[in-house]
């Protein structure tokens, strides 16, 4: 890496020297283009935040009696924010270990001839539109999950998550979380797979040469090498799960409560799904309220990403 950086600097100095110390036109154009692109993205982000703030302000200032459901803004948004985080957490908890296993299978365990085809199959999942996942969730996974959810209620009902009564339609938080997990799995595993297969050969062969079994080799070289990328892949998936709208809108049977009960028919909605459902029928302050909830989602996503960045940069220092 360092060697690389040195050669490029030298090349740059050489080029600069050869053209009499002046930076070339191409260099100047390129750097101003990249600066412009970066500034545009920041400006867009700032514009979105500004728009959300301005539009959310009336809802913040309004008295509870004017808002939908005669409740304060916090009471309105809290269950939605809770549902959003809950669904996304279930999805990440299920998807990330599976995605790491899938990535390891494709990069280190599957027979060489199959690797391309298998990778392609998993990537196919990423290309499926979210509305199709929603339909699959409500027509296939939901009905199929009714039996297992009754079993969970009967055997593990003492845990708050499976308190029941189990839904008979399968339109529960657990099913929504599972569908979200299936949706984010390809992204997370694609990121992990890329990095796993880039683990330096000499480290892997060194471990094997010292007598490590394949799993010990993976544990000692591949996983530490890929750790920060797995984290950033997970955050990418978390971001998608937090913002996912259509699949959740279709699947979840909602009522505005806060509960950890994952298998009943009364579930907290998520911010994005709530906006999709209510926006067409809203006007005036109700719209401002929805936008205020959007602002909260924006903040949640921003904070998650900042935390992820912090984790990754700390990993890289070590």
């Amino acid at each position: 890496m360092e060697l690389h950086a040195d050669t490029t600097t030298n090349a740059g100095q050489l080029l600069a020297a050869s053209s009499g110390g002046e930076r070339r036109v191409g260099d100047r154009v390129f750097s101003s283009l990249s600066v412009a692109a970066a500034v545009t993205i920041l400006a867009l982000l700032g514009g979105v935040a500004f728009f959300l703030l301005i539009e959310a302000l009336p809802a913040v200032e309004a008295s509870p009696s004017q808002l939908p459901g005669d409740q304060s803004l916090i009471d309105y948004i809290a269950p939605l924010a809770f549902g959003t985080v809950l669904a996304a957490t279930i999805a990440v908890l299920i998807a990330v270990p599976l995605a790491v296993a899938v990535a390891l299978f494709i990069s280190h365990i599957a027979p060489r001839r199959l690797v391309l085809a298998l990778g392609y199959m998993v990537d196919l999942l990423a290309a499926v539109p979210s509305i199709v996942y929603g339909l699959w969730g409500i027509f296939v996974l939901g009905p199929a999950a009714v039996g297992p959810m009754e079993w969970l209620e009967a055997k593990l009902g003492f845990l708050p998550f499976f308190e029941g009564p189990a839904s008979v339609t399968g339109r529960t938080m657990l099913v929504a979380g599972l569908v979200l997990a299936v949706m984010i799995l390809p992204i997370v595993s694609a990121v992990a797979r890329e990095v796993f297969s880039q683990t330096p050969r000499r480290l892997q062969e060194g471990a094997l040469a010292l007598g490590a079994t394949r799993w010990e080799m993976i544990k000692m070289t591949v996983l530490p090498f890929g750790r920060s990328s797995v984290i950033s892949g997970a955050m990418l998936g978390l971001g998608r799960a937090l913002g996912e709208t259509m699949a959740v809108t279709i699947i979840l049977s909602v009522s505005g409560i806060v509960t950890f009960n994952l298998i009943s028919q009364a579930n907290p909605s998520t911010i994005a799904a709530n906006i999709a459902l209510d926006f067409p029928e809203s006007s005036g302050l109700a719209i401002n309220t929805l936008i205020a909830s959007g602002l909260v989602l924006f903040a949640i996503t921003l904070v998650t990403n900042l935390v992820a960045r912090a984790i990754i940069s700390r990993q890289n220092v070590q």
Binding site: F105, V122, V132, W136, V140
Partner: peptide, 19 residues
């Protein structure tokens, strides 16, 4: 571990095949 990873991969393929 190899067996667990293979099973996890099979599990991940179920939704795709079902879809």
């Amino acid at each position: 571990v190899t067996l667990v990873i293979v099973c996890a991969f099979a599990l991940a393929l179920i939704p795709l095949l079902s879809l």
